[in-house]
């Protein structure tokens, strides 16, 4: 029985993979919060744009944390196929959402910098 136990499919013992991936998402959210904090540091650009950008940063940080939790949940529900492979759905939607967020933040930040003071 020990042998059978050792050869259990990974779906039953995903180990630290899920934790590491969830943490990677959360660390990314911290990047957005840092950008928000820097925007608040001093007055630059039109106030409305700056406040909107900070709000967007914080909102997207929360979104990324949500993505991380969702990915963690997926990983706890791993699928083992009959042929022995264990897979997890790829993070297509999360990756797209994060990229769209970064591009939007970059554009917004550029506009705020260009419309300086």
């Amino acid at each position: 029985m020990t042998r059978a136990r050792r050869s259990r499919p990974p779906a039953e013992r995903p180990g630290l993979q899920g934790e590491r991936t969830e943490l990677a998402w959360e660390r990314s959210a911290l990047g957005l919060l840092a950008a928000a904090a820097l925007l608040l540091f001093r007055h630059v650009g039109p106030g409305v744009g700056r406040v909107a950008l900070v709000a967007a940063d914080v909102g997207l940080a929360l979104l990324l944390i949500g993505y991380g939790r969702r990915r963690g949940g997926r990983i706890r529900a791993l699928r083992t196929h009959p042929d022995g492979r264990t897979t997890v759905p790829d993070a297509r939607r999360e990756v797209l959402g994060a990229t769209a967020a970064a591009v939007a933040i970059a554009l917004g930040t550029t506009v705020v910098i260009v419309l300086r003071t």
Binding site: P10, P14, Q17, G18, R20, T21, I75, L78, R85, T86, T87, V88, P89, D90, A91
Partner: peptide, 8 residues
């Protein structure tokens, strides 16, 4: 689909 560790 690749092994879940590669996907992650």
């Amino acid at each position: 689909d690749p092994d879940y560790r590669f996907t992650l």
